[in-house]
Amino acid sequence: MAFDVRLRINDKVATIELKGELDASTAGEFHETVGKAAGAGAVELVIRAEQLGYLSSAGLRSLVFARQKMGDGVRIAVVGASEPVARTIRLAGFDHSIDLVDA
């Protein structure tokens, strides 16, 4: 159950690509990456979740952190989340602040 997170920043879009399982033991890495993305001055944070197999509340925490850190003018999108992952995001009500976009 490996976890991998990659950050790309080009122009005004920061893209974080997630692979594997995001739980309390891997959330720290994601959190750090979100911090870097937030510091980059992007207007958009795109989280590619096509290969994210699992998301727990520990991962959601970092999404709140992203929202707090990036300010109101920044759009955050989670792209290609699987149904259970998208369900978790919706259940927590995060879809009010974060766009769930099909891949």
Binding site: I76, H96, D99
Partner: peptide, 11 residues
């Protein structure tokens, strides 16, 4: 409507 209210507000 698939966009979040937050994103719409930012725009």
């Amino acid at each position: 409507a698939t966009l979040s209210p937050h994103t719409v507000r930012s725009v």
